[in-house]
Amino acid sequence: MAAHHRRQWAAAAVAAGVLSIAAPGPVYAVDFDIVFPADTACEFELGVNVTGGKPITREFFDSDGNTVRTLTAGRGSDLTFTNVDTGATVSLKGNGSVTSTIIHPDGSSSVRSTGHNVLILFPTDVPAGPSTTLYVGQVSYDVDAQQVFTLTSASGRTTDICDELG
Rank of each mutant, 00 (worst) to 15 (best):
D31Q: 10
V68R: 06
P130F: 07
L134P: 00
I103R: 10
I120T: 02
A11W: 02
R157M: 06
F81Y: 15
D142R: 14
F44A: 04
H104V: 02
L71C: 09
A41T: 01
V111H: 06
F122T: 00
G25H: 11
V84K: 09
S63K: 15
R157Q: 12
R6P: 03
G52K: 08
D163G: 02
G107E: 13
V126T: 06
G87N: 05
F36D: 03
Q138P: 05
D64A: 11
L121R: 05
A88T: 03
G137C: 14
Y135F: 13
G96I: 00
F44P: 01
N117R: 05
V14P: 00
A15K: 05
T72A: 12
G53L: 07
A41Q: 03
G53R: 05
R69M: 15
V118P: 01
G115W: 00
R58F: 01
V90W: 05
P24Q: 09
G47V: 06
K93R: 12
K54L: 13
P37V: 03
E164M: 07
V18A: 03
S100D: 15
A3I: 07
F60A: 12
N83W: 08
E43W: 13
R112L: 01
T132V: 06
I56D: 04
T150P: 13
T72G: 05
V84L: 09
T159H: 08
H4P: 00
F61K: 14
T82K: 08
Q146Y: 05
S110L: 08
G17K: 05
F149E: 04
T67M: 10
T40Q: 13
D33G: 09
S140M: 14
T86S: 15
S110H: 02
D33N: 14
I21Y: 01
P127W: 08
G115L: 07
E45T: 10
F149M: 13
S91I: 03
V30G: 07
I103Y: 02
I56L: 09
D144W: 05
A145Y: 04
T82E: 15
T132P: 01
C162F: 09
G53H: 03
L119T: 00
S153P: 02
E59H: 02
D85N: 13
S20A: 13
Q147G: 01
T159F: 03
I161V: 03
G74D: 11
V50I: 13
